[in-house]
Nucleic acid binder design. Structure first.
Lengths: 72, 72
DNA sequence: TTAAAAAGAGCCTTATTATGCACTTTGAAA
DNA sequence: TTTCAAAGTGCATAATAAGGCTCTTTTTAA
């Protein structure tokens, strides 16, 4: 599904915090199977699922503009 | 579902670019019903759906750390 | 190298998202 | 205020995410 960047950030953060998938699943309330599926690159989590994981890791989901509009 | 911030950003961006829901649905490949559902605060899109919308608006989904870890 | 922990995968059921179609409501301009 | 475009809703179905179990593979530490 090509969410490599996001997946990498989550794995990295988990590593930084020394949290296993099992622990993260536990504290985030997201099913372990769902987390494994996502981190392994298969899976297309809902925003709610992603937010749950991310929140538990002290992170947040955000949008940023890549191309600011040109005001002529 | 309380994704107010993200919803607001999308609506704002759409307004800035003068794009209607119908146009965004069209160019993003996301169903109009799905987009309406999300923008009206009901709905919990998958990451794929959100990415599609966001990409079409020249934006991207990202994660940011709220609480940097303390290296003692 | 070996054992235990952590991560990944298969299978299955349930819950929920994605989407179309038709209709209603809202908002803005004429 | 009338009208038309844009946004929101109800209903129904197909597709798919969520999650539990069990088992396999990979990593890591002793």
């Amino acid at each position: 599904m090509h969410f490599e960047r996001i997946i990498k950030q989550i794995k990295q953060r988990r590593a930084d915090l020394n949290v296993t998938q099992e622990m993260l699943a536990e504290i985030s309330g997201v099913g372990l199977r769902t987390l494994k599926q996502f981190e392994s690159g298969k899976g297309n989590p809902t925003l709610k699922t992603l937010s749950g994981l991310v929140d538990a890791l002290g992170m947040e989901v955000g949008l940023k503009v890549k191309t600011p509009i040109q005001h002529p």
